[in-house]
């Protein structure tokens, strides 16, 4: 099939950026979306232009590198699917496809579709861990974890940190991402000693990074490639309130 692409091009963080149009010819339905972009890029280099910069690494939906808004939807709108796992069989001949980077103050653009998501790492550094030194641990089976709690923790823990939730949110809120981590660690017994500190510290860093607030529209859940439930945001709010009370702040 043949497609028309409208792609966001921006040389660096200071550049204002603009859309440019390209043609994509002879696209096979078996190609992934990123393979389609590879083909376009090979053509651009051939005609003396610079290729479209975009992040991708594992190309199997787990590393969370790929980050693009496709026709207005983060990762392109196939349920539970990253851009790298989106295949061209979901598009049809003659379509125009608009491709943009994640847009959020806390995710400045490096170039074209490549953005800076180190804000997520800084949130993790404030409390997204259980403080255990290597070696200073009991036998693994000395800490039984009920299966349903462990399974629920896993539902949250499978977040890939891609940032689609932020890109989809009208407030550029990172609540789903932060909620996933806080929920995972507050659900398991190992995470209890730091439960309150973690909730307070991660939420504070999230706010300091310039992410917006949650108004529960659920757009994050709708685009999340791991289908992480909005329920975790409710859980995070509860964890945060609980921490405030326990710490005597309110």
């Amino acid at each position: 099939m043949d497609l028309k692409l409208k792609v966001w091009r921006q040389d660096n963080a200071d550049d204002v950026g603009r859309f440019e149009e390209y043609q994509a010819h002879d696209i096979s339905p078996d190609m992934s979306f990123l393979e389609m972009l590879d083909v376009v890029n090979e053509g651009l280099i051939g005609s003396g232009k610079e290729p479209i910069a975009f992040d991708s690494d594992c190309r199997e939906g787990i590393c969370g590198s790929c980050s693009m808004v496709i026709n207005g939807t983060a990762h392109g709108g196939q349920k539970g699917t990253t851009a790298c796992q989106l295949h061209m069989r979901h598009f049809s001949d003659g379509m125009t496809i608009t491709i943009e980077p994640w847009r959020a103050t806390a995710f400045p653009v490096h170039r074209d579709l490549v953005v800076d998501r180190t804000a997520f790492d800084r949130i993790q550094q404030k409390g997204g861990f259980i403080s255990v030194r290597t070696g200073s641990v009991p036998d693994a089976n000395a800490i039984p974890v009920p299966k349903d709690e462990s399974d629920l923790a896993m539902d949250a823990a499978q977040c890939i940190g891609c940032g689609a939730c932020v890109a989809a949110c009208k407030n550029a809120s990172a609540m789903l991402f932060v909620a996933a981590k806080i929920s995972h660690l507050s659900l398991v017994p190992q995470g209890q000693p730091e439960r309150e500190r973690r909730a307070l510290a991660m939420v504070k860093q999230m706010d300091d990074e310039g992410f917006g607030n949650c108004t529960v529209t659920g757009s994050c859940e709708a685009v999340c490639p791991k289908e992480i439930s909005l329920d975790f945001i409710a859980r995070m709010n509860r964890e945060y309130g609980r921490a405030l009370i326990k710490k005597g702040t309110i």
């Binding site: 861990f129 259980i130 255990v132 290597t134 070696g135 641990v137 009991p138 036998d139 693994a140 089976n141 800490i143 039984p144 974890v145 009920p146 299966k147 462990s150 399974d151 923790a153 896993m154 823990a157 995972h184 660690l185 398991v188 190992q190 995470g191």
Partner: peptide
Amino acid sequence: NIIDQCAAQGVPFAREYGGLL
């Protein structure tokens, strides 16, 4: 030791109903 370490970090390994790995 690796399994002990990872379990203590909160890695959500698959578990049986009794709560063991």
